[in-house]
Design a protein around this nucleic acid. Structure first.
Length: 423
RNA sequence: CGGGGCGUGGCGCAGCACGGCUAGCGCGCCUGCUUUGGGAGCAGGAGGUCCCGAGUUCAAAUCUCGGCGCCCCGACCA
């Protein structure tokens, strides 16, 4: 899915000269406070400090300057897999770590329209990945001025609701306009022979998504992997007594699995020394979507027991229907996880028009709120200060595009936005 | 940076206010036997600078002083 977009993988340096970072005013303002800075190297103080990339716009733009002269050089579509460092005041496992791994896309275009198209195209890909692969429903939207990426013209995002009803930003796609082009003086000569600044985008998703999967689908038994992403989709647990029976059943399993390669991923857990119950728990903890148990009783009846990780449901399946049933059940689990997450979100999504009512409800029961907002930054800041909640997104295809009054100041508002507490 | 808590075999903890047997428990690990359809039982065993340093004392995991480290809660953020 990602590879069909025409982007090429590339890699840029980890260390960014401080002067690069400083070129785009908003960018440095946003990121400088959270940068790790290398001041010494080889036992000496450096003439110029090196920042460890918090993101790679600046180092990449320093190269674009050399690469771009003509409209014929555009578009440039680059993707980088990299670790980045942001010195957050407070870390949270998976969701906010000092170092994290991500992919960052960086593109350059000849027109504003093309850049905007790219920004939205990627947002849609992220949405598809979140919903169809991670089974996490997301809201696509625009970030407010306060929340947008430092240096962007517009930031789009996908927002998800975790099981504790808090919001998690699962991905972002930025239209950078000509901001970085101007900062790095990157111009191209267009068909009309005029020199113009390049239009750009950047976008990324990170290892935070692992946290999103855990917090969206997980239960008291552990993680639940959506089938499409599960490294192991099916685990087979033979249940045997004595060597003779063991050999018989293992051979049966061998026969059973012979046609599975290429259809789905599986493991046969024939470890000796662990009892079946122990194995059940272990694989459940790791989130394997389907478990097959096969013991003497099943052997007799020419069937296996199939257990779903998401519901715990156990069903005997005749051996001749097994392969098909596994495939259809994996699909069913994928859909069920999505549906369950979506229902959870819908049940905790409220329309609110009264600020004091909102203040109560955001604490208990919590959730996402459709609220009118006038568009002023001051109202947004007041909201955050007084309630700890933030405007998560101004949704695209907003189902609540209706006139109303700002939840905070009462002034006119043309649509509702999504308000929630966030990670 | 502010507020709270913690540091004891691999992991989780008890012991510490009132100093004193060989530092104990659960899990895990090793060996053997019995087991195997939801985290097995019994028996035996290995494994410890009690965070570091100094001090008090006949005697310190325990008391005193000084360090170091970690976790949680609040101010920034994919």
């Amino acid at each position: 899915m990602f590879k069909d977009t025409g982007h090429e993988n590339a890699y840029f340096p980890l260390f960014i000269p401080e002067s690069f970072m400083k070129k785009e005013a908003e960018h440095v303002k946003g990121f400088a406070p959270e940068c790790a800075v290398v001041t010494h190297g080889g036992g000496k103080k450096l003439d110029e400090s090196l920042m460890i990339r918090p993101t790679s716009e600046t180092i990449i733009w320093s190269m674009y300057k050399n690469w771009i002269q003509s409209y014929r050089d555009l578009p440039i579509l680059i993707n980088q897999w990299a670790n980045v460092v942001r010195w957050e005041m407070r870390t949270r496992l998976f969701l906010r770590t000092t170092e994290f791994l991500w992919q960052e896309g960086h593109t350059a275009h000849a027109s504003d329209a093309e850049a905007e198209e790219e920004t939205l195209k990627i947002l849609k890909i992220y949405t598809k990945f979140a919903e169809e692969y991670m089974a996490i429903p997301v809201i696509q939207g625009l970030k407010t001025e306060n929340e947008k990426f430092a240096g962007a013209v517009r930031t789009y995002c996908i927002e998800a609701m975790m099981q504790d009803k808090k919001a998690l930003q699962a991905g972002t796609s930025h239209n950078l306009g000509q901001n970085f082009a101007k900062a790095f003086d990157v111009k191209f000569q267009d068909v009309d022979e005029k020199n113009k600044y390049v239009y750009a985008t950047s976008w990324g998703v990170s290892t935070r998504l692992i946290g999103a999967i855990i917090m969206t689908h997980g239960d008291d038994k552990g993680i639940i992997m959506p089938p499409k992403l599960a490294p192991t989709q099916v685990v087979v647990i033979p249940i045997t007594k004595g060597d003779e029976e063991r050999n018989k059943i293992l051979e049966f399993v061998e026969q059973m699995t012979i046609s599975w390669n290429g259809k789905f991923s599986f493991k046969v857990d024939d470890r000796d020394g662990y009892r079946p119950g122990w194995k059940f728990n272990e694989w459940e903890q790791q989130g394997v979507p389907l478990r097959l148990e096969i013991g003497p009783r099943d052997f007799e009846k020419n069937q296996v027991m199939m257990a779903r990780r998401d519901t715990g449901e156990k069903t005997p399946i005749p051996i001749e229907e097994l392969t098909d049933t596994i495939e259809s059940t994996l699909d069913a689990i994928q859909l069920a996880l999505y549906k369950r997450a979506l229902e959870n979100r819908e049940q905790n999504f409220f329309v609110v028009d009264d600020y004091s009512e909102f203040k109560t409800k955001i604490e208990d029961p919590g959730g996402f709120f459709w609220a009118h907002w006038c568009g002023k930054g001051e109202c947004e800041e007041q909201l955050q200060e007084e309630t700890k909640a933030t405007i998560r997104a101004i949704p695209l295809d907003n189902p609540h595009k209706e006139d109303g009054k700002c939840l905070i100041c009462g002034e006119a508002s043309k649509e509702r936005v999504v308000v929630a507490k966030a990670y």
